[in-house]
């Protein structure tokens, strides 16, 4: 039997008609919200494809693509051989043929074998061809730590992707953000790396289908007056918890969910920090040359005159992402975030 021949969808033709728009509000876990966004992206655009390892019959190792192959058929949602470079290189070719591929890299650390196709091909093809062959590719990957995974199943690669010209990078922090940011990313004509905080897949939250809100730039997850915590992905909820703890001491902490790691919303940073005059950046990636440094510099450029203290970083360490038994030491925890807040508050000029 030929692999190339399509398995007909269970409800044939479903993939070609746009279903009734989702409306209203509902409660979904993040993996359900991403699944809904993929479903709607496939329904909206017949040129959208989902591909990757185990995304078809299995529905993905995190069940994010559950049911999509049955609904849209094996031509539009398909399993690939186990080769990440192949997945991304094939996606580049499909984009050249006028498709909008949504490849999945099964775990963030598996991007390393595909870096060549991502950096030298996908990111540069629009530039190389002077816009003749754009790369509308939405690259999904379960990202960051917090699930006691085997080695290289937990990384924090935004520092790497954000430094590559030609890529855009986004990470949602809630089911609502996850749904709308993925729909938005899947309509872009440029390659977008969509980093899914895997430790948050099962957290439920309200999704409002009618009110996506602004999908560009950062999002104020919690308004506050005394200090801004800047975070993204799984660290947003941790910062919200830290803000609650700080509130018990009478501190009113703002949490700015950066969402887009490339481009970074410098205006939102300036708006927040010119109000609070203090900032702590929190991320899981190693400290040195992490995005915390970039965020800190953007704040310094715009808010130097009003800053009460140097921007503080609470991050992973300059070590390989360790195994699960050390995750709580490595990934910024609430205590470390609170210490960071304290250092900023206690800072006194020379």
């Amino acid at each position: 039997m030929s692999n190339a021949v399509a398995t007909p969808p269970v409800d044939a033709g479903a993939g070609r008609t746009v279903p009734a728009e989702r409306t209203g509000r509902t409660t979904l876990s993040m993996n359900q919200a991403i699944n809904a966004a993929l479903h709607d992206a496939l329904a909206e655009n017949p040129r959208t494809l989902v591909l990757g390892e185990d995304v078809g019959r299995l529905g993905g190792v995190f069940r994010v693509t559950d049911g999509l192959q049955a609904k849209f058929g094996a031509d539009r949602v398909f399993d690939t051989p186990l080769a990440e470079s192949g997945i991304l290189g094939m996606s580049a070719g499909l984009a050249m043929a006028g498709y909008h591929p949504i490849p999945e890299v099964q775990f963030d650390g598996f991007t390393y074998p595909a870096i060549n196709q991502l950096v030298t091909q996908i990111a540069r093809m629009n530039f190389r061809t002077r816009g003749a062959l754009p790369m509308p590719i939405t690259l999904r990957m379960p990202s960051f730590g917090g699930i006691q995974s085997p080695e290289l199943h937990s990384e924090s690669l935004e520092w790497l992707f954000a430094h590559v010209a030609g890529l855009k990078v986004v990470s949602p922090s809630s089911p609502h953000q996850a749904y709308h940011l993925l729909r938005h990313a899947a309509q872009r004509p440029d390659p977008v790396v969509y980093m899914e905080p895997k430790s948050r897949y099962w957290q439920k939250g309200r999704v409002d289908f009618d009110e996506p809100g602004n999908l560009e730039g950062a999002h104020v997850a919690r308004a506050g007056r005394h200090l801004t915590l800047v975070a993204w992905g799984a660290m947003v909820s941790r910062c919200l918890q830290a803000a609650e703890a700080a509130a018990e001491d009478g501190l009113d902490v703002e949490v700015l969910d950066l969402r887009w790691l490339s481009p970074i919303d410098a205006d939102a940073l300036a708006a927040s920090i010119s109000k609070t005059r203090r900032a702590v950046v929190v991320h899981e990636a190693p400290k040195t040359a992490g995005l915390g440094a970039e965020v800190s510099q953007l704040i310094t450029e715009r808010c130097f005159g009003t800053l009460k203290a140097p921007v503080e970083r609470v991050t992973g360490f300059d070590v390989p992402f360790p195994s699960g038994s050390l995750e709580n030491e490595y990934i910024p925890n609430i205590d470390r975030i609170l210490y960071g807040i304290q250092r900023v508050l206690e800072y006194r000029r020379g």
Binding site: A4, L49, D75, R76, S85, G86, L88, G89, M90, S91, A92, G93, L94, A95, M96, A97, G98, Y99, P101, Q117, Q121
Partner: peptide, 14 residues
């Protein structure tokens, strides 16, 4: 080479 495979697969899908 992978682009040629992806582009060609697109022709099959078409």
């Amino acid at each position: 080479a992978l682009h040629a495979v992806g582009w060609a697969h697109g022709q099959r899908l078409d």
